[in-house]
């Protein structure tokens, strides 16, 4: 097995979470890389949807924006944005939403709006875009981000998109029938929510990762699952396909 970076491990572990039958609403950035890696490896028939209205898209390079021309050219169909959000997302046609996060708490609530106070922000982030309704209307949610104490915090500054809220049955109390976050894939581990409390607990550590590294890069006290395992290392094929995809993308966007 050749060497791999934590970022590559994150993208590969995230791609493995998707299946061939999924209809996946793809967030830009890390989720987009994972979703397309899944399509180019074990899930060739996966339906990838971007919020620009492109359904069943198969780009040869990763798009810089959610509306790059490549997405439309390779899609089965392209619908208007109101139709995308009304018929397809709200209509319950999407099995998985794949989201990134600027700030995340242990219940999978996401902040991409502001750091600090909303009216006097320390940092104004881009905002929610499609995420608030992706988080509530998709069958389940996968989240991917790089671990950092600034990113994984005890309390997020603003709830852009609801995960498990205050934990337990809080989603049901809000009238939600969808599952919410069921997996968190970081550069160090794969996490799953505790069946009762809904707090993210570590399911597998990526090869070579220590508990010290985990806690140093996470702002809440980490819990580990009883049957903690190790994430299988990337295969040669996974690495090759991912590296080719990244090289093509870099060449296309003038790197």
């Amino acid at each position: 097995m050749s060497d791999f970076t934590p970022n590559e491990m994150m993208t590969i572990a995230a791609a493995r979470a998707l299946s061939n039958d999924d209809v996946c609403f793809v967030g830009i950035g890390a989720p987009s890389a994972a979703c397309n890696l899944a399509r180019l490896t074990h899930a060739p028939d996966i339906t990838l949807i971007y919020e620009s209205g492109t359904i069943g898209t198969a780009p040869s390079v990763l798009p810089l924006s959610i509306g790059d021309g490549e997405l439309c050219k390779t899609a089965i169909t392209t619908v208007s944005v109101p139709e995308m959000f009304r018929y397809w997302l709200q209509g319950g046609r999407v099995t998985v939403g794949f989201l990134g996060a600027a700030q995340l708490d242990k219940f999978g609530n996401i902040n991409t709006t502001v750091v600090g106070d909303y009216d006097k922000p320390k940092t104004r982030l881009p905002g929610g875009g499609g995420a608030p309704e992706i988080a509530s209307n998709c069958g389940e949610i996968f989240i991917t981000l790089k671990q950092a104490p600034r990113a994984m915090v005890e309390r997020i500054d603003f709830v852009t998109s609801m995960g498990h809220g205050k934990g337990g049955d809080d989603r049901a109390k809000h009238g939600l029938k969808t599952k919410g976050p069921t997996m968190l894939i970081t550069d160090l581990a794969v996490w799953k929510p505790d069946p009762v409390s809904k707090e993210f607990t570590v399911a597998t550590l990526h090869p070579g990762v220590t508990r010290e590294q985990m806690q140093e890069s996470c702002g809440w006290t980490i819990r580990y699952g009883d049957d903690l395992g190790e994430t299988p290392a990337p295969t040669a094929e996974e690495l090759e396909v991912l590296r080719d995809l990244n090289a093509r993308t870099k060449a296309a966007h003038g790197g």
């Binding site: 109101p82 009304r86 997302l89 709200q90 875009g129 995420a131 309704e133 509530s136």
Partner: peptide, 26 residues
């Protein structure tokens, strides 16, 4: 959110005063 604005444009085109959708939950 995107869903809100897309719905609000559609309501504007449809001559309605407001848009209704399943959104902003939590």
């Amino acid at each position: 959110s995107h869903a809100a604005m897309a719905n609000a444009y559609e309501a504007g085109a449809a001559g309605l005063p407001m848009a209704v959708f399943r959104g902003y939950i939590g």
